[in-house]
Design a binder for these strands. Sequence first.
DNA 1: TATTAGTTGATAATGATTCCTAATTAATAA
DNA 2: TTATTAATTAGGAATCATTATCAACTAATA
Lengths: 141, 141
Amino acid sequence: MQQLEDLVSSLREEGFRITPQRVAILEYLLRTDDHPSAEYIHQVVKKQYPMVSLSTVYKTLDLLKEKKLVGQIEVGGETRFDAHTDAHINLVCMNCGKIDDLDENSLNEIQSRAAKKSKYLILNANFELFGYCNDCKSKFN
Amino acid sequence: MQQLEDLVSSLREEGFRITPQRVAILEYLLRTDDHPSAEYIHQVVKKQYPMVSLSTVYKTLDLLKEKKLVGQIEVGGETRFDAHTDAHINLVCMNCGKIDDLDENSLNEIQSRAAKKSKYLILNANFELFGYCNDCKSKFN
DNA sequence: TATTAGTTGATAATGATTCCTAATTAATAA
DNA sequence: TTATTAATTAGGAATCATTATCAACTAATA
């Protein structure tokens, strides 16, 4: 897990301005295990900095995506974000919408095998399993 | 790969009506290797049956998803469909938007391992690798 | 051939995301 | 510390994929 201070100074060195809005958004993403949507990030950050707008959240997320500081997956018509950038499986609960991460070493191996077989230049990966989480699955038996 | 006739009669047996619109959409999905969007399916099917509406395409896709006759992945804010329902990797070209399938036996194994570790009840899976396809990657060297 | 419930087509509504622009402000140097 | 300025922000409008609505139509059945 990256440290806030390191990320902030590397962004500053690249010429980006360090605004309270950006710090608040990054800070929240680093401390949570959730996979929040832009809308949800906005709700959370507004509690601390009520002036933050939703469009700033979107623009900050674009920046962080470009810098590979957050990953994204598209689920149910919305994009969900995650500061856990190692190769992992996203477990998506189709009932409550929760997303859990699960580390899985073999993904890197599959990825390089797929790159070789397909001749694609691979830049990014998403592995999603959809189902019901441990809390919800009892409701569907 | 399933046969059109089999799918049609299984739908009829379940009480669904067999309309020319549904047959045209299913027929196209079965014969293509593309991963078309709803909009694109509409364009294609309209050539043969000009009366088919986009909302019928969406409704038919909902039906086929529910019956597990097509899979879907969300990419770049739109949903793309695929009648190849075995476990496989989707290779998404970030330049031209093409999606290729790549069979990979080990996905089933990963999936059951993940189910055990996470205690999720797994119903569906998507494995996506993003990058540049063989045709496009030369443009980014 | 008549009945009827499932399906369709057209359009309106929704919701996530992007676009636009004047006002604000972080970074820099005097 | 203050002035300068280009990057950033807030807020609202615009966009685009998808869903909802409902009157008209039709596949299945008897």
